[in-house]
């Protein structure tokens, strides 16, 4: 009974993760410019990675494979943002302008704690 429940949960996680991967891929094509495409990439990078790896960890139970999966997931989640930051920062420094930066006018608002 518990095994069946675990199976169902992990299948749901894997299915939702696959859907997230697909949505991120579609978003990478649909979104209009570079800075918005980063968001689609980060959707596949974090949410899909989390869901798929947790789904597979539930499938493999308590074993060495689970530990390895956890290590890979942790590594991806720790280094992914760093690579994204390096990419976005390089684009910004090279003078690629994001459109519609209306947030600059709100500059005074965000200093409050």
């Amino acid at each position: 009974m518990i095994e069946l429940a675990l199976d169902v949960v992990s299948w749901v996680l894997l299915a939702v993760g696959g859907a997230c991967v697909l949505i991120g891929g579609i978003g990478g094509l649909r979104l209009p410019n570079f800075y918005t495409r980063i968001h689609a990439a980060s959707l596949t990078d974090t949410m899909a990675t989390l869901l798929i790896f947790v789904g597979m960890m539930l499938q493999s139970g308590l074993s060495l494979a689970t530990l390895k999966l956890f290590a890979i997931m942790l590594f991806l989640l720790l280094t992914g943002p760093t690579a994204t930051y390096a990419l976005a920062n390089a684009a910004l420094l090279s003078g690629l302008k994001p459109e519609g930066d209306t947030g600059q006018s709100k500059h005074g608002e965000n200093t409050q704690p």
Partner: peptide, 26 residues
């Protein structure tokens, strides 16, 4: 259109490769 779009796409491709390899293992 820009170099950074291409690098971003390659980054996504690489991350997906890691995911695909893990799924293939199972």
């Amino acid at each position: 259109p820009t170099v950074y779009d291409r690098v971003l796409a390659v980054n996504v491709f690489g991350t997906k490769t890691v995911l695909l390899l893990s799924v293939i293992a199972f």
